[in-house]
Amino acid sequence: MLTAPEGPHVLRAEVKSLKFWYGKFQALHGVNMPIWDRQVTAIIGPSGCGKSTLLRCFNRIHDLYPGIRYEGEVNLAPEGVNLVDRQIDPIMVRLLVGMVFQKPNPFPKSIFENVAAGLYVRGIKNRSELEGRVETALRQAALWDEVKDRLPKPAYELSGGQQQRLCIARALAPQPKLLLLDEPTSALDPIATARIEELIDELVKDVTIVIVTHNMAQAARISHQTAFMHLGSLVEFGDTGTIFTNPQAAQTQDYVTGRFG
């Protein structure tokens, strides 16, 4: 378990009475929580509790599907942008917030082009700048040493764990304000999982991370803050230590001790 960095928490984002609907079905019932700067915030809870739904609000991936509706705010601090405001273009949100999905989903292109994908979108064409930033991102994702000699090779030649780290590098390259991880290790073996967890420990020195995980031990190991969700509501939010050893709500207690969920 990590201890939160010394000093006062700095706000990186804040969720305020966030409600969300898939058509007529309300999936989030007014969620409030802070996301502290350069800390790992884990969202846990049983299947269908809305943890992925909440995460996917942060970069408006929901907007790809018809019939969805947001209410409330997800404010990015200190910029003061409400990410779920209809006035804000979802493209803008995704330029600010990076995401890594459950299954490694590299593009069917070279390793280099995968990491550079977000940089191309941002209009970076200068070859040496591209190369520099791809290298930085791959180093951050602890993948550089494994791929530095085969950057032009197809990304599909990498193993599952390497592919997931490649996806992390791809999300990191444009230096996002927030990095969202949606169960990033659920498709990986324990060794690849351990590597990703170490990586998260390293990364959080520079970037704020929000992670959804099914694995409570993982949440306990890698996060500073934990949010426990149930039936579309936030039951409890607090320091990971407190949530796992001294939770306030009985539901949280039952869940983290494995009595339900």
């Binding site: 910029e79 003061g80 942008v81 803008m92 209009g123």
Partner: peptide
Amino acid sequence: ALHTSEARIV
């Protein structure tokens, strides 16, 4: 105003 580069891309 804060994210002029992003705004330009958008």
